[in-house]
Design a protein around this nucleic acid. Sequence first.
RNA 1: UGGGGCGUCGCCAAGCGGUAAGGCACUGGGUUUUGAUCCCAGCAUUCGUAGGUUCGAAUCCUGCCGCCCCAGCCA
Length: 564
Amino acid sequence: MSETENSTTTNFIRQIVEQDLKAGKNDGHVHTRFPPEPNGYLHIGHAKSIVLNFGIAKDYNGQCNLRFDDTNPHKENIEFVDSIQQDVRWLGYDWQDRLFYASNYFQQLHDFAVELIQAGKAYVCDLDGEQMRAYRGTLKEPGQESPYRSRSVEENLALFARMKAGDFADGERVLRAKIDMGSPNMNLRDPTLYRIRHGVIHHQTGEAWCIYPMYDYTHPVSDALEGITHSLCTLEFEDHRPLYEWVLDNISIPCHPQQIEFSRLNLEYTVLSKRKLTQLVDEGFVEGWDDPRMPTVAGMRRRGYSAASIREFCLRIGITKSDGLVEMGMLENCIREDLDAHAPRRMAVMHPLKVVIENYPQGQSESLTAPNHPKDEAMGERQIDFCREVYIDQADFREQANKKYKRLVTGGEVRLRNAYVIKCEEVMKNNQGEIVELRCSYDPETLGKNPQGRKVRGVVHWVSAQHGVKGEVRLYDRLFNQANADKVEEGGRFTDNLNPDSLRTLTDCYFEPALAEAGVGEQYQFEREGYFILDSRQAAREALVFNRIITLRDSWAKIDKAGG
RNA sequence: UGGGGCGUCGCCAAGCGGUAAGGCACUGGGUUUUGAUCCCAGCAUUCGUAGGUUCGAAUCCUGCCGCCCCAGCCA
């Protein structure tokens, strides 16, 4: 993390932390935590939370724990536990020896529950799910008290022990907090604290428990047990805060963390809910959690986004309580900024058009030197082979065009990037009238210098037909067609918004020889095309497969579209 | 009037009673062997809205409008 990240970042949460520090609260300590449930892969919304939590710990000399909120074994598994750790590390953060699981606290959670029962603040309820819903009331009407609410402490203790011992089936009993069925806050209408789950093997505790604590009960206790000072979560938990407080106020625990909520990230043209991402994976709309089109950390890594640019993005969007929809352009700018500075330049032709340079001797070739970066000399240079036959991109030739078209036209000149100026002498077509080859001449006096007395229209990239390496390129585009991908028509599904062209594969591409040695994780700029990275899943194969990370900014596209 | 939140430029976001930061996007112009990068310039007389308090209001008060969240034995 040596890059200069926005150090002036401030937000309302940091202000609270600073005030607390100034007031000497928590003995001057700051301790945060990132608490994912291992029921899916991390996405860029989690990255926002990670950057916030670990960033605050780092900037205020504090600590940040990684804690798995693993209270619902039904949806969780070890693959997710592993991927989350890998992704947090990849993003550049270190929890040192502070890796925890809510399940580490199952015994203590149980003991505190017994405390609540003894204090008459929790009871075992026999209502089933449907009945419970009916008793809960509605948003505008108060609920009714459960007929089991007034059980004696002794009976509750005995029943809870039997729940734990496995005497009851799933759903048969539940432990509830005794708070207020008439509360306007639904979360306070005697929320469930424990439920029964048989027949699932918890990835950490195996079959040791058949009762599992709910999030609302587990979270405050876990935070307090770990000495968390500031418990940061997203806005939808705002209504849960009174319950968070209630739990800590009613058990014998000295620590009392402060819960602070911020708005979750919404990004244009993608979805950021684990439920929907899971559907995309399970229903085969994408290759997997690490599909380069996914907004997951694993997907973005495979796509070629750097950890630094994702961090930068998270800092730029800020932390507030107002919900918004962030433009893709914001992310894309962060990606490009990083890539422009660090990616070595190369040449690749994706829609090849053969060019024969008639005045270049048959059988001859020469090695040209090209810088790896136009501004950063320290990045060195590489050799490129030039010969009589080269490929240029089909988009870089038009039989005729107006003055705005700065590429090759019949009878016109153009510079081959890092090489000579060529002139189009003749256009060869097949029986269908399609252009199949260009006959050109080159000016041997134009290597490293401009021709005298005439102006060359533009510069075009190329690859030697003899020396170039053939391979595949995968062009990725936005996953959804709608900026607000969550928004669906009546009766529709969010997958209706999927972009059918989010992946296009080009198999007839030519890469300059240096790219044959490309390694996993190395990002390149294919000049005039965009940024690319070797696909990490294809790397072991013979064929070269490059993923397009992102295009270059393209002001020509606008001009061309407007009619030149 | 169920409860809880949020409304500052197209997007994100500073601002915390003293007269609207910054970034992204966009629009001009310059440099350029990438139509990239870089550089320079422009881009909110106004802060959802209507009143009120004040010498002074995006900031304080009141009403109204709009949007988001909550009725899992999910997190």
